[in-house]
Design a binder for these strands. Structure first.
Lengths: 233, 233
DNA sequence: CGGCATAGTGTCCGGAGCACACGCGAGTCA
DNA sequence: TGACTCGCGTGTGCTCCGGACACTATGCCG
């Protein structure tokens, strides 16, 4: 451990943090990852995972590091969301936070409790406890982004297990977009894009006719993308 | 002037700046506002207007203030774009910048030189001089955002004078989207939205048949927006 | 008064979206 | 073991929207 030194600047500087909104899909429920705060301010309250940006790491790296540290998660998709910087958003003083937006396959991650015993848990996005700081605003912004984004970029697949049925996929869209979709048209459209690989497998352990499993073809998507193809709905 | 004091923190902090990409439309050319740097690093190079965020102002306020100070501009539209925070982006040390994206009616603004004699000027976005820092990346990001955004939000109007012809509007879209549009379809679509107020005036001083002038109806737009209306193309 | 430059306008066609209904396969339970 | 139930998986036809497309109108100028 290096000796603790202090750092002096000619002008005052805001502190800089990152905060992550991590979404996961649990059956028909959209979940967000929250961490229970152990210290003041807002001790005991739930908050988005996040922390201070180190001097030698990029913002993206900071977001990834915090997720790894606080919940043992490596998201399948991570992108910068928005930067929140109202002077009063943190009672300790001026703290500007760069918010990130992440998607994980819930099935693939067992949550690891944070090292410092703070608790991490998934909550339905429609029913979260009261959040610390301005994290409700951040969450709302992330939800909006998700809604906007699933329609024209195939990021929804990051929320599903590698093999999924078309019905699962449709449900995902219905949950995120908060409206029902026509089954026939949904399938026609998504299959017409030729981005799904039809597997020779079907669901297991269901008490009705088993649905065929599909896999998202990332390689094909990148090819089509280069050729000027536009994913939509 | 307060005595210059220094500021000490337990952990090092990045410096925080804002940088603004300001677009303006000059006939058929899309322009961006640049400032010539007076000091190192990159003295003499052109750069985006911007500067340090003060402790008591929000990020948006900082952006507005810098635009006012450096060019005497109050943009018709201003929104946060993206935050750039690679550790090496500024040779002086760690500087994280929140980039903004602004639109102004070029006709309404005569550029005011910055108080400290740094020069401000408009450049065609397709032909800028070499920029300081990572400002090319910021500009590219802003252009992308503009392209994406004009199609589903009526922000294009912020680039035109209050009264404009349909041809001007179409040209604007053609320039931004970098492709030609069909005149009849464009008019049909835009008029069908019922967002333009047809004025009893026509262009002046043209050596051919004068075109009718229109005005964008902000009030009607807000109403339709609440009713779930979607502006598109 | 003729030429020219831009304004302004309507139709047709194909593809996409949408509503609708039925057969299938597998598990369940009596 | 056979009948039932439940969700999977498909074809069709109608409607409507979006894109392609070419000519007439108007005003200025020389």
């Amino acid at each position: 451990m290096p000796a603790r030194v202090s750092h002096t600047y000619e002008y005052p500087r805001p502190a800089l943090t990152v905060d992550c909104v991590v979404f996961g899909l649990d059956e028909d429920d959209l979940k967000v990852l929250l961490i229970q705060r152990g210290v003041e301010p807002f001790a005991g309250r739930w908050a988005l995972p996040g922390g201070f940006v180190r001097m030698e790491e990029s913002l993206d790296d900071a977001a990834r590091r915090e997720l790894e540290e606080e919940a043992g998660i490596r998201p399948g998709h991570l992108e910068q969301l928005y930067t929140f910087g109202t002077p009063e958003r943190d009672p300790r003083g001026r703290v500007v936070t760069v918010a990130y937006f992440a998607l994980v396959k819930l099935s693939a991650h067992t949550l690891r409790a944070a090292t410092d015993a703070r608790e991490a848990a998934w909550f339905s996005v429609w029913d979260t406890p009261k959040l610390a700081f301005d994290h409700v605003d951040i969450l709302a912004t992330a939800l909006q982004r998700l809604k906007g984004k699933v329609r024209y970029q195939p990021i929804g697949f990051e929320l599903l297990p590698p093999k999924f049925t078309l019905t699962q996929l449709q449900r995902l869209y219905e949950v995120v977009l908060e409206r029902e979709l026509d089954k026939r048209n949904f399938r026609k459209k998504i299959l017409a894009m030729d981005l799904l690989e039809e597997l020779d497998e079907v669901e297991q352990d269901v008490s009705h006719r088993a649905a065929r499993l599909y896999r998202f073809d990332h390689k094909k998507y990148r090819q089509l993308e280069k050729a000027g193809f536009n994913f939509e709905l």
